[in-house]
Nucleic acid binder design. Structure first.
Lengths: 196, 196
DNA sequence: CTAACAATTAATAGTTACTAATAATAGGTA
DNA sequence: TACCTATTATTAGTAACTATTAATTGTTAG
């Protein structure tokens, strides 16, 4: 009896694991997998309080419908869209701001989204395998609200060896909302060798 | 017959719409909604090649299981996890870096993720309704690679009226990878009145 | 006017994946 | 031996279907 009990507990633990990994498993399939009768599987599910397959699927489906809205932006949506670029010289990128970029109540776009736009653009225009931001000076001039479209212009102001000074200006409706000066270092595929 | 045909086409169009908006609608519920028999709804579905409710739910569930992996980070993952905070004074946040935060080949974390961590933390510790970053000076000291866990510490270094100077230090394995000085302005719910 | 046709509804049998309840069986234990 | 646990089987009932055949209603063309 002790031995059987152990087997039972172990089986239930594994059933739970299996279902967690694949909620689409029916009792029949589980019964085949574990070589026990469907009834035993059902009893196990009941004892563990695991709902039937159809309800599990519905749960997954509903979660993801919701998650879709909550979950945040794709990379492109964070860093904006490159619309013009002259490697080593200048570039322009656009970012349409959306609600999920804001502070909850105010509707003001969080500063790091604007930085992401500026920084990504600055790095994009560097003509090298790898470009890393070293130093940055940022100035947020006026708040940006949801729905506003941001236009970022970046220009290489100076270059000394592998050190670039890039200035970025972000405007919304021809009004400057942000400026930044970034020092960016370029490398040609040697940095990545560093230990992880 | 022409009139019925129109009705039929129109009904099918609407059924399609309803199902698209809510894949959890059974034939029975649709029948009640449209005041037609279940059989009619079934015929409509067949003619339009729309699968039964259970299969639609499975499809949604599977899509989302996949999307879960592909779709990018939750907001929390971008800004890290707040683990300690003393309002108006200091705070600590942690960010586990993952592959999707890197430049494709190098495995180096993109700078704006580190800024996001620092900036969000700095704003979090300001004791006010609304806090906006005004000026920032950032220094990226050594590259961060996927998998490294970042610990950010922020401290209010100075306060003059609604103007805060916050310094943030980000470390990985006790090694400083980033420092930043942020000037943040606090407001008490008057900024949000600005026109959108 | 009626046969034909479309649209709709009804009826029937079968499927999957269950719930819920009861009963039967095997094996160990006190 | 009587009891208990674990397992399996059986039966009745459910939701949400598929697939098929048949009946009903209304219109319309010849």
């Amino acid at each position: 009896m002790m031995i059987q009990n152990l087997n039972k507990i172990e089986r239930q633990r594994r059933i739970k694991e299996y279902i967690l990994r694949d909620p689409f498993l029916s009792d029949k399939k589980l019964a085949e997998l574990f070589n026990f009768s469907v009834q035993t599987i059902r009893l196990d599910r009941l004892e563990m309080g695991i709902p039937e397959m159809r309800k599990r699927i519905i749960k997954v489906a509903k979660e993801t419908s919701l998650a879709d809205q909550v979950k945040s932006l794709k990379r492109d949506e964070i860093i904006g869209e490159l619309i013009d670029i002259e490697l080593g010289k200048s570039g322009i990128a656009i970012l349409k701001t959306v609600k999920s970029m804001t502070f909850n109540r105010t509707g003001i776009i969080r500063s790091h989204y604007i930085f992401s736009l500026a920084d990504s653009l600055a790095i994009s225009i560097i003509d090298a395998e790898v470009a890393l931001t070293g130093i940055a000076r940022l100035r947020y001039k006026i708040p940006v609200y949801t729905g506003q479209t941001l236009v970022a212009k970046a220009r290489v102001a100076q270059k000394k060896g592998n050190k670039y000074l890039v200035s970025v200006h972000v405007k919304s409706n021809h009004e400057e909302v942000f400026t930044g000066k970034l020092v960016i270092f370029s490398f040609n595929d040697n940095v990545k060798k560093k230990e992880v």
